[in-house]
Design a protein around this nucleic acid. Structure first.
Lengths: 138, 138
DNA sequence: AGTCAGGTGGGGGAAAGTGGGGAATAGTAG
DNA sequence: CTACTATTCCCCACTTTCCCCCACCTGACT
């Protein structure tokens, strides 16, 4: 799941998911709250493995995952590849008109452009980029 | 991956990858942002090992890798060995018409000629070259 | 000169992306 | 229970992008 796209939520609240991502996500996927104010979209299988990990957690720690599940939604794209995002989630990520759809290796993330911009430019900063590559030993 | 070539991006945004590199890169490869304003091209296997390393990273560090994935693209050359470079990446590396394609041992790099020139002449400078060789203990 | 492989250019069709009409369902008020 | 509104889903039509294919050029080797 790599790449970056921009699409807008139409008048009926639908968001188009690029074909590239749909291929990898399968035909049903799960949207939930993500880090730093984005939404994360997982494929069926990734979601299942996430559930598995949470269930293996001691109860005390699993408690903090409550909101993750409370704010999750199962989405099935229509024939044109668009999904309907629950109002609650749209609000959390401040998704209004334009949405940035980015690949994040294990999942796809949905961003409000204004929130995404600083994160992207930070990662593009030569110092940070060099540090990141070094971290990977690449 | 060694050598240096120059090719131009055609009217449809396609860039020709020399046969020498295609042999080593395989038939699907990954283009992403590189250091000093170039683009890096990795083979399927190199990319897979990169993913592996990122997924092993603690979440806090993996987060800073977001831009790396958002600004990456999977490319499959057409029957003539050309790839389509996403506009976003082309912009990052300021690739317009002419492109320098260089071997960088582990990957192939794509450069705007004007950005490449100072880097090459710096590396060609006898003093720097000698210093670099010495660093290697060669 | 002829052949072959690498490289260049462009036409056309399929698929991706975009927008909106309208039916089915559910919720609300009268 | 009925009428009205809102939400969701399904379908159709249009535009744009991209990818597949073919034709041609150039240089190397015979």
């Amino acid at each position: 799941m790599i790449g970056q796209y921009q699409h807008s939520i139409d008048a009926k609240g639908r968001l188009f998911i690029p074909a590239k991502f749909r291929e990898e996500l399968g035909e049903t996927f799960y949207v939930t709250i993500g880090l730093d104010g984005c939404l994360s979209v997982y494929s069926d299988t990734k979601w299942a493995s996430l559930i598995e990990k949470v269930e293996a957690l001691p109860l005390s720690k699993a408690r903090s995952m409550r909101t993750l599940f409370a704010n999750a939604a199962k989405c099935e794209p229509d024939a044109q590849g668009r999904i309907l995002i629950p109002a609650k989630l749209r609000e959390y990520a401040k998704l209004e008109k334009e949405v940035i759809i980015t690949g994040a290796s294990r999942c796809v993330e949905l961003w409000n452009p204004e929130r995404w911009a600083p994160i992207e430019s930070e990662g593009l900063d030569p110092e940070n980029l060099a540090a990141a590559m070094e971290e990977l030993g690449f």
